[in-house]
Write a protein that binds this DNA or RNA. Sequence first.
DNA 1: GTCTATAGATAGATAGAC
DNA 2: GTCTATCTATCTATAGAC
Lengths: 195, 195
Amino acid sequence: MARTQGSHSDITGPRIRKAALNLFARHGYAAVSMRQIAKEVGVQAGALYNYTPDKQSLLYRLMREHMQDLLSALNALERCDDCQQALRRFVGFHIRFHLQRPDEVFIAYMELRNLSPENFAEIEDLRRQYENALEDILHSGQQAGQFAIPDTKIATLAVIAMLNGVMTWYRSGGRLSLDEVEQIYWNMVHKAVTA
Amino acid sequence: MARTQGSHSDITGPRIRKAALNLFARHGYAAVSMRQIAKEVGVQAGALYNYTPDKQSLLYRLMREHMQDLLSALNALERCDDCQQALRRFVGFHIRFHLQRPDEVFIAYMELRNLSPENFAEIEDLRRQYENALEDILHSGQQAGQFAIPDTKIATLAVIAMLNGVMTWYRSGGRLSLDEVEQIYWNMVHKAVTA
DNA sequence: GTCTATAGATAGATAGAC
DNA sequence: GTCTATCTATCTATAGAC
C-alpha cells in the first residue's frame, strides 16, 4: 500500500480503479472520499486527478466497463435454437459471471442514483440490452409453446431478480458448489416458466 | 415547507422522520446532510438534535420501525394449515405490503452497510425472522410432499428476491393492476416450488 | 423547542514545485 | 506523474440566547 515517490503511470491507473471499486462496494460511493482511495493506492489525493477528471467519472467508468464486459461475454455465448437450452445457458452464465465480479455487480446495482443524469441514461441503456436478451429467449419459448408465461417482461425481471439473489448469500467454499447452485436455480427457473 | 418560529414538538418529530425517509431513499443516507433534512422540514439544522441524538440513530430507527411493522403485519395474517394456501397468502402479503412502502423498503435494503455494527445486527435479526416465516411454509410443504424444493433456505431467498423485484418496476396506475401483478408472481412462485 | 453562531473536521478539486 | 499546500465549501454536532 505504501509507495515511494516517483512516476508509475502504467500501474497507478489500474490500482486506482481497483481501489475505488473495492471501497465503493464496501462503503458506498457517497461515503468514500478521494483521500481514502488515494491512501489505499499509496498516493496523495491530488495525484488521482491525473487519471480521472472527477469522482463522478471514476464511478461512471467502473459501471460502464462492467456492463460492457457483461454484454460482450453474453454475446460470445454459443447460439442455441432450443429455447429451453438457451434459458439454461443464460441462467448458468448469469450466475457464474456475476459471482465472479461481486464488487462490480454490487456497484452497478446500488450506485445508479449517484450517476449524473447523462451517465445514468447510458448505463440504463446497457442494462436494458441485457434484459432484452433474456426476454427474447422467453418470448421465443412462449411462441413455440414451450413456456407458459403470463407476461414476458415481468418474467424477465423476475428471473433476473431471483438470480441476483444468489449474490447476497453465496460464498465460495461454502456448503454448495457452483454446479449445485446453478442446478438449484435452474430447477426453479425452469419450473416457473415451463408450460 | 417554510415555517415560522416557535415550538412544535408534536408535529416536528414525524415531519423529520418523513423527510429523512424520503431523502435517504432518493439520494442515499451518506449523500444526505442534516441541513437538507432540516430544510425540508422547515427548521434549522440544530433543531433536529432535539429529536435524534445523531444522524445514525435517525437511520436506525427508520429501519427498525419498518421491520417491526413488517413482522407485526405478517403475524397478524390469518393462520392457514394448507401449505399452498399459506404460500399464496405470503406472496400476496409481501407484494402488497412492500408496494405500499417503497421508501422504507428501499432504505431497509440499501442502507444496511451504513448502520453501525450493533444496529446492523439488530436489523439483520428482524430480517431473519421474516425469512424464517417463509422458510417454515416451504419446509412444511416439502415435508407434506406438496412442494419439491432442492434447498428450502435458497428457495426462501430466491422467492423473496423475485418478489422484491416488483419494487423496481411497478408503478401505481400503470399497465397492470395490483391483482394482476399478484396473480403473475403467484403463478411463477407456485410453479417454481410445486412438485 | 427553535434560533443563531460556531467549533472542529473533512470534503472535492486545483496550483505550482520537483 | 507525484508531491505539498491550499482554496472554498460543506459536514456533524454543540453552546447559549430567547
